[in-house]
Nucleic acid binder design. Structure first.
Lengths: 128, 128
DNA sequence: ATAAGGGTTCCAGTCACAGGAAGGTCAAGG
DNA sequence: CCTTGACCTTCCTGTGACTGGAACCCTTAT
């Protein structure tokens, strides 16, 4: 399989696939002409990575998860710990964004939004 | 005022303050020895920037907001538009994170998290 | 004279790619 | 056989908003 077919089937850009090889997440073979040849296993790993990334896992988390996936003697506790830590970071991020949203929603509602210069948003930023 | 005092009073790291000068958000004067001298106006702007950044506005949004703040003939509609667009991006981000959180919460709950290799999290990543 | 604690600039690194240039390869059509 | 166009390759740069560190200057106190 060439890279563009893999890109289609995994829904990952070719650039991303090359990058994943670059940082050692996959190791596709090469033809004599230098082209990458992807095996079903490579395809599978890339799909795995795509889904892990879609869940927001960092590349380093993905590396860990992939290693655990390939290790038949893994402990599910190790996987769960990675997922729980990631989940915590997500929840923190959500809380932070919600706080911003609440403040902004309030400010936007207060602002007339017309041609006059008077603005509660700027007022708030200027003297918090 | 020297940079470290400004850093304390605005709760911004000196590095950040220098960076803001670098990208033209502030223009503190210089002493003969090359040290920056910050005026009350600089201090005020930095505090403004700190609060705008805390609400998640991008640096470019901050530049726009600061310009609007300094323009006495501004229309509050312009401010409101920037804020509303930012608010929308935040809400999109929250929705995206919540979706990740829901999936992850479910997976984490399903996973035994013990010494055995069987793991629903990996199973999900492997076959979506 | 020296040491501590300011200040300065400049360079590299972060994260996860994306864009683009320069050039090699391959299959089809004239 | 030649060309065209669609692939493929590597390499370099840029993104956002800083942070860390090196190398060096300035000021004040001992």
């Amino acid at each position: 399989m060439n890279i563009s077919e893999v890109a289609q089937r995994t829904d990952l850009p070719p650039k991303t696939i090359r990058y994943y090889e670059d940082i050692g997440l996959i190791r596709p073979e090469r033809r004599e002409n230098g082209y990458r040849v992807f095996s079903e296993s490579d395809l599978h790993k890339l799909a795995f990575l795509g889904r892990a990334r879609a869940l927001g896992f960092s590349i380093e988390d993905c590396r860990t998860l992939l290693a655990l996936y390939e290790d038949e003697t893994r402990a599910s506790g190790d996987v769960k710990r990675v997922a729980r830590e990631h989940l915590e970071r997500i929840e923190d991020k959500i809380a932070q964004l919600q706080s911003m949203r609440d403040t902004l929603t309030h400010l936007v509602r207060e602002c007339a939004g017309d041609a006059r210069p008077d603005c509660p948003i700027l007022k708030d930023l200027a003297k918090g």
